[in-house]
Amino acid sequence: MTTNRLIGFIALLTACTAHADDGGISFWLPGQFGTLAAAPTAPGWSLPLVYYHVNASDGGSKPFPRGGRTTLGLDAKADLLFASPTYTFAEPLLGAQAAISMVAAVGRSEASVDATLSGPRGKSFSGGTDDSLKGASDVYLLGTLKWNHGVHNLMAYSMGNLPVGAYDPDRLVNIGLGHAALDAGGGYTYFDKTNEFSVVAGMTYNWKNPDTHYKNGIDAHLDWSASHFITSQTQLGVVGYFFNQITGDSGSGATLGDFKSKVSAVGPQAGHFFKVGKDL
């Protein structure tokens, strides 16, 4: 039997600013894995949807590299809708349920700065400026293996990107990364049909951005979720994440030296499973 489902999640997270990575954007979207992250799903096609909102400010306390500039007083926000067409295989692989996904987002990002100390192509500026952009993200390819043992579930995953999103090294804001990256890790989910707890940890390796000559350091991250199913299809709960850069940024474009980011967040979540199509 194959059941097709549309899975919708809304998570509202309150975060502090991450003060590193090229343009302030990491490959790993903090909070990417949430409810039932490691739990097997019905074989066949599914379409998880995730709305992501972030609002961040550095308060003008330190210089920050962004869009080929070194800036002060950054105030940025973004609204993104991620879609992840996913195919789950019916036949086990290594005793696990295998699935592949192609992830992409559309949305809007905007930012303003109080002062620009240096600009793209070596130019210097002063005074405030702002920028906004609507467009699509890079394309992310995700593969997972999930093992089920009653209420306990384990997962291994790997994920990489094709840097094809909206990106311009001379802009203050971008949605695409402008460079390739690879992430891998594992997770655990407890699920007794009523209560759920999930945690996923991983690490990211980044390649150098050929336009800015900026190479992000190695990132470590942990996403978690705790929720209660008020019906068999609807759950409410909380989600959060921890993100910590364990090696500094490098390359000739990393003008501020051994820069590292660290960010955490927590907020409410709501989810509902929509059945589409027919059982076969």
Rank of each mutant, 00 (worst) to 15 (best):
L49Q: 09
R108Q: 07
F33I: 02
Q235K: 12
A181E: 03
S46T: 06
H179E: 03
S158Y: 10
A99N: 06
S84F: 08
A90F: 09
R171G: 05
T247K: 07
S252W: 00
L6H: 05
N244V: 02
H221M: 11
D75Q: 14
H19I: 03
A83L: 14
S261R: 13
A76I: 08
D219Q: 15
A96L: 11
L81Y: 11
L36N: 13
A220Q: 03
T88I: 10
G44Y: 08
G60W: 08
T116C: 12
T129Q: 11
Q233P: 05
F89I: 05
D21L: 02
M102Y: 05
M1C: 11
C16W: 06
Y87M: 15
W224R: 01
H272M: 09
Q269K: 14
S112E: 14
G128L: 02
K123C: 05
S112L: 07
A201T: 12
L222G: 02
V106M: 04
K278V: 13
T129E: 10
T129W: 00
V276Q: 00
P43R: 08
D279H: 13
T2E: 10
R5E: 09
L72T: 11
K193C: 09
T35L: 15
G240T: 01
V199N: 00
S225E: 03
G122H: 00
Q269I: 05
H272Q: 08
A136V: 09
T194F: 07
A104N: 07
T144P: 02
K62M: 06
A270F: 13
L154Y: 15
V263H: 06
G187Q: 04
R108P: 03
K260P: 00
D223N: 09
W207G: 12
S227V: 13
Y205M: 05
G202I: 09
A105I: 07
L162T: 04
L172R: 02
L256Q: 08
P43H: 12
E110F: 01
A39I: 01
